[in-house]
């Protein structure tokens, strides 16, 4: 049992193969790595946030990223997605390099991923449907996707289907700032999945929700991800969520990766050590 940061040791990463490679049968048992971080470090000025963080996450897996406030979970997520540049190290997403590449290449890569944020990040004055449509901008950008009134029929239908999956099709025309916290997060999930992403990142998706709404949102989020074989990485302070919804748990503490283990091999007290 791990009771404190000093006791933490990296456990052997488990390459759990959830979704087999769709083409060919000869590699069916070989896990495909969707996310690969190699010695990633990040500093803001002279202040180091974390250093030398490496991991490989296989397709269809779900990984919880845990650690105390300010340890750099969100920053690591942003570095991996290329939203902010890493100070050192490299990242590959879906087999393509995500660091040191042209912006257009990075945008093309990001079109294959989705993000759900803690604050939901919907545009408050726009309709739910328009917000969901914006999730398709990476794949099919341009003025016709700026508002649902101008959008092509197929895109509108895709957005309605995404809303249907999160159970909010009846609120399609409601303004986003008139939703409850749980509804708002569901819309954010619909926006993230409407572009059929291959990787979903979620940055503390339940932090602003009450426990029941948080559980509902995580259930929905994970069922949609599993249904489509999407690779999921989520950050959370909720130890139960990390162990229940993650196949694997990565723990950050003291600016380093201090834990890397399968969820089934961990107990809640193991994770509490990261917060000491």
């Amino acid at each position: 049992m791990i009771s404190s940061v000093s006791d933490l040791r990296e456990k052997a990463p488990v390459a759990r193969h959830v979704r087999p490679e769709p083409t060919g049968t000869e590699f069916a048992s070989v896990p495909v790595v969707d996310i690969e971080a190699q010695s990633v470090s990040k500093s803001f000025g002279d202040t180091p946030i974390f250093s030398d963080v490496s991991f490989r996450l296989v397709r269809g897996s779900s990984t919880a990223l845990v650690g105390a406030n300010g340890v750099g979970k969100s920053t690591l997520l942003r570095c991996v997605m290329g939203l902010i540049p890493a100070t050192a190290g490299g990242v590959r997403l879906l087999g393509e390099p995500a660091t040191g590449v042209r912006k257009s290449d990075l945008r093309a890569l990001r079109a294959r991923i989705g993000l759900v944020s803690q604050k939901h990040n919907l545009v408050p004055r726009l309709s739910v449907l328009s917000n969901v449509l914006h999730g398709m901008l990476g794949r099919t950008g341009g003025p016709r996707h700026w508002a649902h009134g101008f959008a092509p029929e197929a895109s509108r239908r895709a957005a309605m289907e995404a809303l249907d999956k999160v159970g909010l099709v009846h609120l399609a025309l409601r303004r986003a700032d008139r939703l409850s916290g749980g509804q708002s997060q569901r819309v954010a999930i619909a926006r993230a999945i409407v572009g059929a992403p291959e990787i979903l990142f979620a940055d503390e998706p339940t932090a602003s929700l009450d426990p029941q709404a948080g559980k509902d949102v995580m259930d929905l989020f994970m069922s949609l991800a599993r249904e489509n074989g999407v690779t999921v990485v989520f950050t959370s302070h909720n130890i139960d969520h990390a162990l229940s919804y993650g196949d694997r748990v990565l723990g950050l503490a003291e600016g380093r990766k201090m834990l890397d283990a399968t969820a089934v091999s961990l107990t809640a007290s193991d994770l509490r050590g990261l917060y000491d």
């Binding site: 990001r110 079109a111 989705g114 990040n121 914006h134 398709m136 794949r139 003025p143 700026w146």
Partner: peptide, 20 residues
Amino acid sequence: GPAESLAATGAGRLDVVACA
């Protein structure tokens, strides 16, 4: 926040400005 969420899905700069 909204701009970051759209940028994360590969939206171009003009799309991000217009939509978020």
